[in-house]
Design a protein around this nucleic acid. Structure first.
Lengths: 214, 214
DNA sequence: AGTTTATTTAACTAAACGGTCAGTATAGCT
DNA sequence: AGCTATACTGACCGTTTAGTTAAATAAACT
């Protein structure tokens, strides 16, 4: 393995002995691996190799495969919720708030295609055993609030907010989670390319907004 | 599944010696196992045990784990497409056709919760390697046709049919695929129970129809 | 310099898994 | 009855994998 910049420089950022950096790199690699395989089928060896360390190093930072998985899952959701909070949707009218949230969710999914797969695999394989329900409910709570505000203001039609919130998240995830099955619909085009991504974003927002508006 | 005995023998139909039945049982068990674990993590031993035979018996019927998986995946999709064909949606106006198709898809997903997970896992884990694209395109083709007819007749607004079709399928799958993550939204209720299922179906159809109508 | 402490490794174990094989039991045929 | 093709089993093999151990290396602190 290529050890770069082994000695030299009083700059103390020697990555190969930087505990925090190694930990984060391990979580990155774990995210990539778990996103494809899920918890059970993930290979610790692969995560180690991806990080450029040995398997034993993982066990220096994490007690077990399970614990590594939980840490990765939590970091994943916390990161996504952080984005949602920054939007300050309460200040916007429900209509604009939902558009903004939709755009952000779609962008988030496209920039980190792992997160959709990870949550999907967590549900299917682990039956939600490690799903941090509090964090999850915050996301759905945000959508539900907007929908309720919209119904009160008359901007949205009368709808059941929870079912609608689920359908909204479903719409925002499916294109990315199932992309490998969907690619045959656009032969020769990249689903995550600029063109398709832009049109998909527009179409999804249009569909949902038309679906909830009065 | 009633197994018809080919001959009248002293002992009544010995199921454990019925080749076709065993094969189907194996595919059933494989479906249940693969739907939770995906291809890689599935345990042949578990599939055998579920069927009530030994592991070697699986290899009597299927060459490998991979072949068993492919057979199961194909049977899965063929079964679902059979339902869609029976609907004869071409005879209906686009509006009614889409409602009928949505209702059928949602019912199909609720009756066989495996199918959504299987397709999701196929995309995420295997990157669509075994996805029978011809079969898959038939389903999307059906939706796209209806949408195009609706735009021509003026019943539906101008939309991009492929993206919309993907979003429709996403809406119809997500509730079932991600149910284990979603259950916290309805504490104490069963997501596949009559009450929630009925309201979810209604809400989903309403959302999509409002989303596409002019 | 030397000693301690944090970080990483190679080598290993025990269990699990996919797949094989030689052989057994049964049904149908002549 | 004996023969043959079909359906199935139990024991086994080689490989892979999560997790462990003791030792090595590098940084930090006297």
């Amino acid at each position: 393995m290529p050890v770069i910049n082994k000695q030299k420089t009083t700059k103390s950022t020697n990555q190969s002995r930087n505990s925090e950096a190694t930990r984060n790199q391990l979580l990155d690699a774990a995210e990539a691996e778990f996103a494809v395989t899920g918890l059970i089928a993930a290979r610790m060896e692969a995560i180690a190799a991806q990080t450029g360390v040995t398997k034993a190093t993982i066990y220096y930072y994490f007690q077990s495969k399970e614990e590594l998985y939980q840490a990765m899952l939590e970091r994943c959701l916390v990161g996504m919720l952080g984005l949602a909070e920054q939007l300050q949707l309460d200040c916007l009218p429900p209509d604009a708030a939902l558009v903004k949230l939709l755009a952000t969710m779609l962008q988030c999914m496209s920039e980190n295609p792992h997160v959709g797969s990870i949550l999907c695999l967590e549900a299917v394989q682990n039956k939600g055993k490690y799903y941090p329900k509090q964090l999850g409910n915050i996301l759905y709570g945000t959508i539900i609030e907007i929908l309720e505000r919209g119904m009160l203001s008359g901007a949205f039609r009368q709808l059941e907010p929870r079912h609608t919130a689920v359908n909204i998240v479903g719409t925002c995830s499916f294109y990315f989670t199932a992309q490998e099955n969907l690619k045959y619909l656009w032969p020769g085009k990249r689903l995550l390319g600029k063109e398709l991504l832009q049109s998909h974003t527009q179409e999804s927002i249009d569909l949902i907004m038309a679906g909830v508006r009065n």
